[in-house]
Amino acid sequence: MILIHCPYCDQTLPELEFAYAGEGHIARPTDPSALSDEDWERYLFIRDNPRGRHHERWRHIHGCGRFFNAVRDTVTDKFEMTYKAGEPRQ
């Protein structure tokens, strides 16, 4: 069971307290109506799925309830870091 550091609680806690929430840093466009179908499709459905460093979102759902960002290696399953929502991509 992975240990995950919640950047809000500043505690490293078991994976069971957390929920995965998809790829990180995919901001909702401020004016979706201005987007072409292709751009909207890209926002909705197209994800990176890299082998290696992956930016992703987690929620401390059975703790403080906050969403935050993480960098996890998809090969080793190691968390490189976690940081608060809104902070720049690491």
Binding site: R28, R57, F67, A85, G86
Partner: peptide, 13 residues
Amino acid sequence: LNMMEDYLQTEWP
């Protein structure tokens, strides 16, 4: 509730 928290925390803080 999870969906609303998600938008509130990350899109419209």
